[in-house]
Design a binder for these strands. Structure first.
Lengths: 225, 225
DNA sequence: CATACGATGAGCCGCATGGGTGATGTACTG
DNA sequence: CAGTACATCACCCATGCGGCTCATCGTATG
């Protein structure tokens, strides 16, 4: 079973080069080409390739938008190819946009030909592959978002909040008013105010809005569920 | 300049195989081996390799803990090698733990020898590299956490906020008071209050604390930097 | 036993905040 | 040209919120 590939790039020379390189592989067929995103989407709809090699920067419709359309097809379109993004420079925003859109890979055009070929095979197999510099960024991003479990626990950052204070802070970060917090914890509203006052003082915050920010930034609460 | 590598794996056979494979490269020197995490850390401290090949599952101290110790060294230890994790099976938890700890790569032991060699070079160069199946998971995770901007834009979620209102909302989410927002945007405080009033009304929120929550939950602002 | 800390709550005070209404100027669009 | 959307600002008002002080009651901790 051969891997059907189309190549979308505004430079004819690049298309020709990649086409020649890939077509020389017995397990890869180049079944189409296009010079911009719009035509790329059309060609893909007709030729339903397994893999779309997509340049990022193109006239008419850039590779990111084209990738989005291919990966989130309108009702009625069943075909959903794997998309392998290509770029000359490696620019953060492009990478993240592409990955968000569901691209299966991101390579720099200066990668060794062998890498491109194996990338096509990897992507066709349903796996994913990134340029090493991109991988590094993605990992860094991942690690930054979820820092390693601090050995002293998250409480360390919360500079000596008592359990009750932490509890109150969390309810603030859920958007409750003082009165609602009081009801929720079965307390007098005044008690809640005392707790909040201490929380703000200990953390050096001005108001509950800043407390909410702190709760998110410190990981006490996290976005999305 | 050769790349100094140590190999940490509890199976002598595996160590021997990898050592032979890598030592055959003119630009790679194997400067040490260890059968478990604890000894691996010791050997690394003495031999200060550029790259540590680290098995995940080992007696005494597993590869994850060893990686953590190498990548977050105690005061006084300056050397900080790159860590390339190896595993026989690819298990999610291991991968995420390792990446959180700051590992530069994650390969399956059944990868082609050429991949291992190039992985060592990539990692030594400060870049990163993952097994394709791992890459796929990381991307999926990434895309899931930050879903692609719907084609009608993130503003759709913000239910028709005007650009100015969005701007004000963002400053609220940075913890600024009305007066500070006014100064920041060169406006009268009353104007700021009008904008905020509209934001709260359009989004169905009660106060600025809830506005901060919304800003985080909608992705207008994100934790961490 | 004395001390300290955490949790609870009261009273008071002042201001930032949020709601409501209305007005003006600009810019775009049908 | 009329209609609409947006940004700007003013005035008024009620109150939620945060600052400050003080008091009581447990429970550890020395």
């Amino acid at each position: 079973m051969t891997i059907k590939v189309i190549i979308v790039d505004d430079q004819a020379m690049v298309r020709a080069g990649f086409a020649a390189l890939l077509a020389a592989q017995s397990d890869i067929d180049v079944v189409g080409e296009a010079p911009d995103g719009r035509e790329g989407v059309e060609v893909s709809r007709r030729a339903h390739p397994d893999v779309v090699l997509m340049d990022v920067r193109m006239p008419e419709m850039d590779g990111l938008e084209a990738a989005r359309q291919l990966l989130d097809p309108p009702r009625g379109v069943i075909h959903r190819p794997k998309v392998l993004m290509l770029t000359t420079f490696d620019v953060d925003d492009y990478v993240y946009e592409a990955l968000r859109a569901g691209a299966s890979g991101f390579l720099l055009k200066d990668a060794p030909p062998a890498d491109l070929i194996s990338a096509v095979r990897v992507v066709a197999a349903g796996e994913a592959l990134l340029a090493p510099s991109v991988t590094r960024r993605l990992i860094a991003d991942f690690a930054r978002q979820r820092p390693a479990p601090r050995r002293d626990g998250p409480s360390a950052r919360r500079s000596g909040l008592t359990p009750r204070e932490t509890e109150v802070l969390e309810l603030i970060a859920r958007g409750l008013s003082n009165q609602e917090i009081a009801e929720s914890l079965v307390l007098a509203e005044q008690t809640v105010k005392t707790h909040i006052g201490r929380v703000l003082a200990k953390l050096g915050l001005r108001d509950r809005a800043q407390a909410v920010i702190f709760a998110y930034e410190s990981g006490l609460v996290t976005p999305g569920q």
